[in-house]
């Protein structure tokens, strides 16, 4: 498999490839802007596979990763992405609850802003919280997940993974399965995949779908077999532990029985269907280990790899104006 050459999508004359100060969500991005980020990410994939992985384009810039919600993987991914580009990366992890007790979110934002960061990466458990902060700070803000709303870099890395494996996005059928109601990953993916011409399905028990989710441009299934039928990509979502026992579904056992991805169930999808999961996985709840670990089908570790490349691309693009890159000032 050969990676597509970077910059393969030519822009119409006079169109700026990415005229946004922040990356708060996929909503509001035009298809060519999404493709631009994917193409930019593409070049970092090979770079990351080489032994010497140091670039210095963000040297002297301060990147703050402000995580108000627990995260290991995403935080690590952003930290590595920043460091590979030469940025001074600082992590601030705060439990959202301790912020509520004292300092307000905006106070925290102003405090961060006073330290003159060049980019802030934010994760928060409330929908809209990242936008709220972005309105109050002087530097670009990158949304690393806000509540149930958006998680744009996850959708970008998913798209990059699919594109590299399948060679395209347009025309593919992507089944997004599981806790759609509470998933920012699902919302960002609905927008991104739909925008690039994929046929998107939401597959979940009715309690985990969300009202009028069909209005988000997806086809809705409450039966797993039907939802997987003929799919090119099967994207599983994580079911949070607190939603398992009786609140939204009766038990993990019943959930796995009807909505867990097993090899048998996967047979309904296309023979070469790709299996994805944003992680961390609940093995035996939404996905069977045999499927998750099937190297031929599962792209789960590749998603993690693409995550770093996508985040490097986003960090690079969002700081170009600050760095005075030609054409971006």
């Amino acid at each position: 498999m050969t990676a597509p050459a970077p910059g393969r999508h030519s822009l119409p004359p006079g169109v700026h490839p990415f005229p946004h100060r922040h990356l708060l969500g996929i909503e509001g991005l035009l298809p060519h802007e999404i493709l631009y980020l994917l193409d930019e990410a593409e070049r970092w994939v090979d770079f990351n596979r080489a032994p010497a992985k140091a670039d210095d384009r963000l040297r002297g810039l301060t990147q703050i990763n402000a995580f108000f919600e627990n995260s290991t993987r995403t935080l690590l991914s952003f930290e590595i992405a920043g460091k590979r580009l030469g940025a001074d990366v600082v992590n601030m992890t705060v439990g959202a609850s301790s912020v509520k007790k004292g300092e307000t979110l905006l106070d925290t934002a102003l405090t961060l802003n006073s330290m003159h960061p060049d980019l802030i990466v934010i994760r928060h458990d409330a929908s809209g919280a990242v936008q709220l902060i972005a309105e109050k700070v002087d530097c670009p803000v990158l949304n690393a997940g806000d509540g149930r709303h958006e998680h744009p870099t996850q959708a970008l890395l998913d798209a990059l993974t699919i594109r590299r494996r399948k060679g395209r996005l347009a025309g593919l059928t992507v089944a997004i399965c599981g806790d759609v109601l509470h998933s920012r990953v699902a919302r960002s993916n609905f927008q991104l995949l739909g925008s690039l011409g994929a046929k998107v399905r939401a597959v979940a028990p009715p309690t985990l779908l969300g009202a009028q989710v069909d209005r988000l441009g997806v086809e809705v299934f409450t039966d797993m077999e039907a939802g997987l039928d003929g799919a090119d990509v099967v994207m599983m979502l994580r079911l949070q532990r607190e939603r398992m026992a009786g609140a939204y579904v009766p038990s993990t056992r019943e959930y796995f029985h009807f909505f867990g991805l097993t090899a048998q169930r996967l047979a309904a999808a296309k023979p070469d269907a790709l299996v994805m999961h944003p992680g961390p996985m609940n093995r035996g709840v939404e996905i069977d280990s045999a499927v998750a670990d099937d190297i031929g089908r599962s792209a789960i570790t590749e998603q993690v790899e693409m995550g770093v490349a996508v985040r490097m691309a986003c960090l690079d693009v969002l700081t170009r104006t600050r760095r005075g890159v030609e054409g971006w000032a």
């Binding site: 149930r148 009202a211 009028q212 209005r215």
Partner: peptide
Amino acid sequence: TEGEYATRWGLSAAP
């Protein structure tokens, strides 16, 4: 209020 908007914006909603 439950519906397309709340679903889109990821807000917890009641019918």
